[in-house]
């Protein structure tokens, strides 16, 4: 059962996306800002991290960089989620160390496809 860390500050989005992922059979834990995301991520128990980019305290780019810098999370798949859609956002996310990138509003099928590509085994 893949274990997902969702780092998202917007309460509704956090709630909605986590419930939809739960319905698809994922285990989901949540962090409400970048600092908490890094702390939880370092526990090393997640198969994939969904990282919002506009976060309080530590933003998603910085949080990703910090996770990548730590040996235990250097290779954990991270998908950036952003509402920004201007040129450069995608490159900026990939440069920070994200494996992939998706824009909000979330198209669940599209996101699931991207997650499946990064997870060792697909969820049931």
């Amino acid at each position: 059962m893949p274990k997902i860390l969702l780092v998202e500050d917007n309460e509704m989005n956090r709630d909605m996306l986590s419930r939809r992922l739960l319905r698809k059979g994922f285990q989901v834990e949540m962090a409400v800002d970048g600092r908490a995301g890094v702390e939880m991520g370092r526990s090393g128990k997640y198969d994939l991290i969904l990282m919002d980019m506009s976060l309080p305290e530590v933003d998603g780019w910085e949080a990703t960089r910090q996770l990548r810098a730590a040996p235990e999370t250097a290779t954990v798949p991270i998908i950036a989620l952003t509402a920004h859609a201007m040129a450069g956002d995608r490159d900026k996310a990939l440069a920070a160390g994200c494996n992939d990138y998706d824009t909000k509003p979330i198209e669940l099928d599209r996101l699931l496809g991207k997650m499946a590509a990064l997870l060792p085994t697909a969820p049931q």
Partner: peptide
């Protein structure tokens, strides 16, 4: 503006689907 519009839309569409 786009960002500000997308965030509530995310919730509208997501919750509808859910």
């Amino acid at each position: 503006v786009s960002h500000e519009l997308r965030t509530p839309l995310n919730a509208i569409i997501g919750y509808s689907e859910l």
